[in-house]
Write a protein that binds this DNA or RNA. Structure first.
Lengths: 165, 165
DNA sequence: GTTCAAAACTTGAGCTTTCAAGTTCCGCCG
DNA sequence: CGGCGGAACTTGAAAGCTCAAGTTTTGAAC
């Protein structure tokens, strides 16, 4: 029997708008990062998250958590970044299983170079088209969706200055 | 000079919420499609868009437009789908450059099998956590962003369509 | 004080996507 | 009608991601 609750017209349009928006936005940012810094967004995020960490250092596990990556993907990515000299691996004193990823000065320089353009692109493509009120609404929607997708609140620990809710 | 307008706290939170939400949502849908139909979302979309086209047929160019894919990516993907027997290529009568992609009955069957679970996942993860009012707001935000990212309105020609998505 | 499951990574193979050519074909300009 | 630029695809190699093992180390149970 066909018990499926299909999407109504409004939902359908919203869903496709979401797909298009997130794809176009991603493409725009990816393109910009690629031409200004020659790295994919995922790699940029690794550098960015390291730069915010104490000593510009995180364990692979923690880094995986904050960039929302699998252990495997991260390991491959850090290998690339290490070849490029942006990141280096170090031993964790006290637990020989865990390895530390450290942002090098060269890596920080690349990030500093890329960041302004990236932020500008985010502003231009996401925030400029929205009114102040819409930004507020969007954030509310995202947080609702997020708390359902992420019941354990892994995101809350990472999002800067999360709401008290 | 440091002319960069960085993101303020609210924008920062909104932006990261967007990243997390779209990633978690994508992962959830991808996982579900993978286990129920064994295909990635991009491939699912190809089948879905073909199923809505007259004669379940589109030129590669048009198909690329509606699934927002590069010509190359689509060509590779259709090659895979053709091996699986879900899609077949045909010659265009009248223009020998263009090739047509046709959804086969087997392909339609796979889609029909996968669609309910997929729609259910979209509903569960995106719409259920939102109030009716929030859906309206979200759609407004997305359309604002979209019209800036897509000034030529390529999306508009594609968005109003029937189920399933 | 051994054993053992689980934690933290890494590795390699397979699949998808991107990038840069390459091919064939249409339509137009002169 | 003869080029010729551009359109519509395809192809192959390189890059990135996923998946399934495999390694080493830890902590805890017995």
């Amino acid at each position: 029997m066909d018990e499926t609750r299909w999407l109504d017209a409004e939902e359908q349009q919203t869903w496709r708008a979401f797909l298009w928006t997130s794809r176009l936005l991603t493409e725009a940012l990816e393109r910009r990062l690629q031409q200004e810094a020659g790295l994919p967004h995922a790699y940029y995020m690794i550098l960015a998250m390291l730069s915010e960490a104490p000593d510009r250092t995180l364990t692979m596990s923690d880094l995986a958590r904050v960039v929302r990556s699998s252990a495997s993907r991260l390991s491959h990515a850090v290998a690339r970044l290490e070849e490029a000299g942006w990141v280096r691996r170090a031993k964790h004193p006290g637990d020989r299983r865990t390895t530390l990823a450290v942002l090098t000065d060269a890596g920080f320089a690349v990030l500093a170079e890329a960041a302004p353009g990236h932020v500008e692109a985010v502003r231009e493509h996401l925030f400029d088209p929205l009114t102040r009120e819409q930004v507020r609404q969007l954030r509310g929607c995202l947080e609702s969706v997020l708390s359902s997708l992420d019941p354990d609140g892994e995101a809350r620990d990472v999002l800067p200055a999360g709401p008290p809710s």
